[in-house]
Design a binder for these strands. Sequence first.
DNA 1: CTTCTCACA
DNA 2: TGTGAGCA
Length: 263
Amino acid sequence: MNNEITISELARLMNVSVHQLRYFEEKDVLTPAYTDHNQYRMYGMDQVYQLAHILLLRKLGVPVQSIKECMTSYSADQHKQLLHQSLQEINTELLRLQGLQRFITKVLQEQQEFILSSDEYRIKWRDTAYLSHWLEIDAQTKLTARSLAERASQLPNLFESDIYYIENEANILTLYTETQTQGPGVLTLPEGNYLSAQRLIHEDDELEQVVEQFFVYAAAQSYVIAGPVIIIEKSYLSLFPPNGLHYELQALLEPHPEGSQPT
DNA sequence: CTTCTCACA
DNA sequence: TGTGAGCA
C-alpha cells in the first residue's frame, strides 16, 4: 500500500510551501522517506512528525542551521540553552512591540487632542515631569542636520517623542527630551496648571508670532506666567495631513487670586 | 503534477 | 530564509 504522500500533499497538510520543503531538504533538516521512480519525493509519518518539530523550532526563531545540529547531535543541556535563548529574544521583541504600541496610542491620542483644541487656549494640569538635557543652540541660528549630527550624541527614536524647547535669558535655546528619572542634566518641570496652546506651523518665523500672541492672550486674561514658555514640538503628528510642524506652547501659571477665575 | 536552477529580496 | 519564474 502507498501510505506515503507527495510533496504538495505534505505542504498542504502542514501549511507550508512546496518550496520550503525542498529548501529544508537542501539544508538537511527534512529528508523524504524515499524518492519514487519518477523522482518524486515521498513522505511518511516520520517526516510529518519531524516537519512539525522543525516548524515549531522555526516559530521560536531558531535558525534552520541550528535545527539541523539540534536534531543530529545535541545534548539535553544544549536543547535547554537553545530554548532559553529563543525565549529571551522573544522577550526583547515583546518589549519592542510594546514600545510601538505605546507610540501609536500616543499619536492617536495627541492627534485627537490637536483636533479638539486647535487654535484654542486651554489650561491643563501637568504632573511633575523630568526633561533631560539634549543640546543647546543659539536662538537665532536654525537647527540644521549638521548641528544634529555634530552635537547630538545619541537620541534613540529621534522625532518619535516630544522635543521640548526652552529659551533662557541669554537667548540660548535648550532642547530637552522627556525622561522618567531625575538625575544629572535633568530639569524638573513642576506640577501645576499650565496655559496651553497648540498650533500648526508652516513657516519658520511663524513661531515667534505665535509666542507673542501667547503672551498677549495671557496678559489679556490676567494670567501670571511663572516661568519660561515651553515649546513642545510634536513632529510625529506630521504623519497626518495637513503637513507642517505641530507645536504646543505651555507656561506654568501662578495660582489665580480668589474670585478672578475666567468664565 | 513534479523536478531543477536562477535570480531576487 | 525563503519566494517567483521558467524549463523539462
